[in-house]
Write a protein that binds this DNA or RNA. Structure first.
Lengths: 245, 245
DNA sequence: GACTTTTAAATGTCAGACAAATGAAATCTG
DNA sequence: CAGATTTCATTTGTCTGACATTTAAAAGTC
């Protein structure tokens, strides 16, 4: 592992990149201890604060964890699915909020991916997944529910559907797509009528998953996508009309 | 923005979290300049190195960028699709390499997602996307190609297919799924016969996309998935037999 | 031998300093 | 006065050295 002192880029960034490459390349294995900060400083010919900045960069990506005390230090972290979910959600959320992605584009992507999970989920879902879906449907029928709580329940419902596919890689990939939509969905005001429609489709969806009818699930998801986009369009036009009036 | 000095967690982690929340929550907008390191140190009642560690954490996630000199400082970064791709690929690759995800699981997820893109791509792909696909098929027929180069071309081919859907959010989500598979694919030795088969299916796929036949594209992808899994299984059993013999 | 105390090693934090980059203001020049 | 040049203040990047805190292992004690 070497760095180039004449490189204009930050030394801490170079050091972080060198260690990251070593981890990705398999030169450092999970739970292996890195040299102490002082030793790394020696090896790279930099000061300890510079090494520390590099280590913090890696810690921010969950690539390492640190432990204080004797026999402490920085250890290569086994990236858990939870950590990966969290990063995926943060990145996706920022991507949507900062890049003026249209609601339609985000919506299309989200439902396209979810429809990819539906057939698998209809075959493999456990009783647990079905129970979660039914419970969320029940929650969505509570009259006093705020729009935010309704959206959160919506996310939990769809997440159960995705998890039902029993493929953690799929769940991870979908986490971002589904959760990142929530801030956009929160901008929609759900009337009693539209909640009713959505709950009806959720029920159809749960029924299709329960009877292992992947084709029906796919059809319902397509309708749900259409309906969601229509709702969003109506909200936008209503808002535009209000602004002009 | 406040932090809790009695919290056992690192101060730099707390500060990073506070600023991250401010960015995600919209309190800090894109291209807005953060206070200087000295000012932040004052505000949070910590030293400058601690502030710097926090900023490096955020920089590692592409949430901020820094600039030296007068009127320099830390600025809220507009997360580009490229940055998001890169993070997604790093995370996905590590997830697959560190968590003993089976080839079948990764493969299933990858093709499920890709099949979600196929119908959209068959409708919207540009001449450019088709040209890239054809060019990569041509490259894959070169006799002297190493397995690694063959895999790289494979990734480029499928990436063109995904990009053909014209949905950057989909492309972003798929980037991880497709690219993270490459190290696993590289472990497969492609015989002349299997290359021939794969190229044949790629050709069918390109034809289907060109004629806007989404259903055919889906079918071919399903066959390609089966074939890939069979190949992988054969490689594994051959390797196991060799180890035992 | 079991418990307590000490100690050493490591990370976390701080203070102060200097280097380097950079844009803007001040100055010089034609 | 216009344009080029120089100076300067600001800000990040890096270094040194120090102390605080945590933690596991070694040493000591009964």
């Amino acid at each position: 592992m070497k760095i180039d002192p004449s490189n204009p880029a930050d030394l801490s960034a170079q050091i972080a990149a060198a260690i990251r490459d070593a981890i990705i390349g398999g030169d450092l294995i999970v739970d292996e201890r890195l040299p102490s900060e002082a030793e790394l400083a020696d090896q790279f010919n930099v000061s300890r604060p510079t090494v520390r900045e590099a280590l913090k960069r890696l810690a921010a990506q969950s690539l390492i964890r640190t432990q204080r005390g004797a026999s402490g230090g920085a250890f290569v972290n086994r990236l858990s699915f939870e950590d990966a979910y969290a990063q995926q959600i943060t990145t996706s959320t920022l991507l949507l909020s900062m890049n003026a992605v249209s609601f339609d584009t985000a919506c299309e992507a989200r439902f396209a991916l979810e429809r990819a999970c539906a057939p698998l989920s209809s075959q493999r879902r456990s009783a647990d997944h079905l129970a979660t879906m039914r419970a969320e449907i029940h929650r969505q029928q509570q009259p006093g529910l705020t729009d935010e709580a309704f959206c959160a329940s919506d996310v939990a419902f769809h997440r159960a559907l995705v998890d039902g596919a029993g493929n953690p890689v799929l769940s991870y990939q979908l986490a971002g797509a589904v959760e990142a939509m929530q801030p956009l969905m929160n901008m929609i005001t759900f009337s009693a009528r539209s909640r009713e429609e959505i709950v009806a489709m959720h029920t159809e969806l749960a029924d299709a998953i329960e009877t292992q009818d992947g084709a029906s699930a796919d059809t319902v998801l397509a309708r749900l996508e259409d309906y969601t986009r229509t709702l969003a369009r109506d909200v936008m036009t209503a808002r535009a009309a209000k602004a002009n009036g």
